[in-house]
Write a protein that binds this DNA or RNA. Structure first.
Length: 342
DNA sequence: CGCATTTGACCGAA
DNA sequence: TTCGGTCAAATGCG
């Protein structure tokens, strides 16, 4: 539902942000005292300006994508159910699945998972729950199909948790994960233990079960090796995305509660066991915050969308924390700007 | 053999 | 009518 112009603009923004990120990564490779640092600062600053210019013109007439899980967020996910996702599914109806396929009206929030995957890691990192894939659908306008998962215990315990995973078109290393419903099964807590503190069900368990939409924005990137974007064909789309985080070695994300006001204001429940998240963040990506915050100008309409109760950024402590990189997608950008400007 | 995944069909909402 | 979401039989894997 965006005009072509918006769409393109977002693409541009996305590209800029990627460049921005890469620059920051490059910066991380340099010593702080390196002469190149200054150049990088300038480059980053230019990116910021460009971004903020785009952004300000962007937010003029437009609500903001972070919206009610409208999915989307990142420009690439245009495809995100253009129509239905915007509707407020403000009511819970856990049981009304009497055979008929009602559209779900359950709390829903999205997470953006970036995985630069090697052959062994083709799906988004597991969130600590076991999921059963029950469908795969080609989505109109999207290059990659969307995969549908439900909690393994949906039968046994009637667990209503579901998730949808879709690979980003622009950057196949990004997975858009949309969670729906609450885990009512035991396993969520058992299995995860502290392994994935930021896993949604932990959060939602803290949520009052009012049918509000949760918009959970997570950026995480687990870098293993070179990205093999093309090789992944749609049918083998994350083969083992389910099951207890086997591929992530149980160390998936840590809540990046950061030490910013926003977080402490909004996401106290999310501050789960996570341990190293903030450390990681402050050491690796403090520059994000600074640079985005610096421009300050960006008013942060993003978060204002109607139903958002919680927004959180989580960072993986991935397979190799040394290799983990934190990247911002568009809305992460928004969020971070907001965060740092609050 | 039991389980998860795949895949095409079906259904309802828009 | 189209499209997203789900079902369920078939298939594959351990």
């Amino acid at each position: 539902m965006e005009s072509a112009g918006d769409w393109e603009k977002k693409l541009v923004m996305n590209e800029l942000m990627q460049a921005h990120e890469l620059t920051k990564q490059l910066r991380n490779h340099l010593s702080p005292s390196s002469p190149g640092e200054l150049l990088i600062q300038k480059i980053l600053s230019s990116f910021n300006k460009a971004l903020s210019m785009l952004k300000s013109s962007d937010s003029e007439g437009e609500p903001q994508r972070t919206g009610p899980a409208s999915g989307t967020d990142s420009p690439h996910s245009v495809s995100e159910s253009p129509s239905s996702e915007n509707s407020n599914r403000a009511f819970l109806d856990p049981e009304c699945r009497d055979g008929s396929k009602k559209r779900k009206m359950q709390p829903k929030w999205s997470e953006q998972v970036r995985v630069s995957s090697g052959p062994s890691l083709e799906g988004p990192p597991d969130d600590g729950n076991s999921w059963i894939k029950y469908g795969l659908k080609d989505i109109l306008g999207a290059k990659y199909p969307r995969a549908y998962y439900r909690c393994t215990h949906s039968n046994v315990q009637g667990c209503a948790a579901k998730k949808q995973v879709q690979r980003s078109e622009e950057d196949p290393s990004i997975f858009q994960v949309m969670y729906q419903g609450h885990h009512t099964c035991m396993q969520a807590t058992n299995v995860i233990r502290g392994a994935s503190p930021a896993s949604p069900e932990l959060k939602e368990q803290q949520q009052p079960q009012q049918g509000v939409l949760l918009n959970f924005t997570t950026g995480l990137k687990v870098r293993t090796e070179d990205l093999d974007t093309q090789g992944v064909n749609s049918s083998s789309f994350f083969p083992h995305a389910s099951t207890q985080g086997a591929n992530v070695g149980g160390c998936i994300f840590s809540s990046s509660s950061l030490d910013n006001p926003f977080m402490s204001t909004f996401s106290s429940p999310f501050m789960s066991p996570a341990t190293s998240g903030s450390n990681y963040l402050s050491s690796v990506s403090s520059c994000h915050m600074n640079s985005y915050g610096g421009e300050g100008s960006t008013s942060m309409p993003t978060l204002v969308t109607s139903d958002i109760n919680e927004i959180i950024s989580a960072v993986p402590s991935g397979l190799n924390s040394s290799l983990v990189d934190f990247e911002f997608s568009l809305d992460q950008f928004d969020a971070s700007a907001f965060l740092s400007s609050v």
